[in-house]
């Protein structure tokens, strides 16, 4: 069983390393000037943190599941 997990972790590490090395040469396929749609507030996963945190609280208090609720998002990713 120990070997099973060791192999899995090794493969995962190898895969991630390959991914990172490959990604170093990635040319951004969405240029900063093409991010107008992404920057629109309607594209945010949660426009208002105060509201989304409250709603998540409502569900957490009444459901067994918890975690990975996410938060606000969206924006253009450009400085």
């Amino acid at each position: 069983m120990k070997n099973f997990y060791a192999n899995r972790i090794g493969l995962l590490t190898l895969g991630l390393t390959c991914l990172l090395l490959a990604a170093c040469s990635i040319e951004p396929w969405v240029k900063p000037y093409e991010r107008a749609n992404l920057a629109d507030p309607i594209m945010s996963f949660s426009r208002d943190p105060i509201s989304s945190s409250y709603i998540n609280h409502v569900y957490q208090a009444r459901e067994g599941a918890r975690g990975a609720e996410g938060g606000q998002g969206g924006g253009c990713g450009c400085n």
Binding site: P49, S53, Q60, E63, R66, G67, G71, Q72, G73, N79
Partner: peptide
């Protein structure tokens, strides 16, 4: 779970407020 959610709620607040889950805005 009201009790338990007190803690997990803070994770959610932080996700939103701190920008932990705000990857697209992380550089600003």
């Amino acid at each position: 779970f009201v009790k338990e959610a007190i803690n997990t709620r803070w994770g959610v607040i932080l996700a939103g407020v701190l920008g932990f889950c705000v990857p697209l805005m992380a550089a600003v």
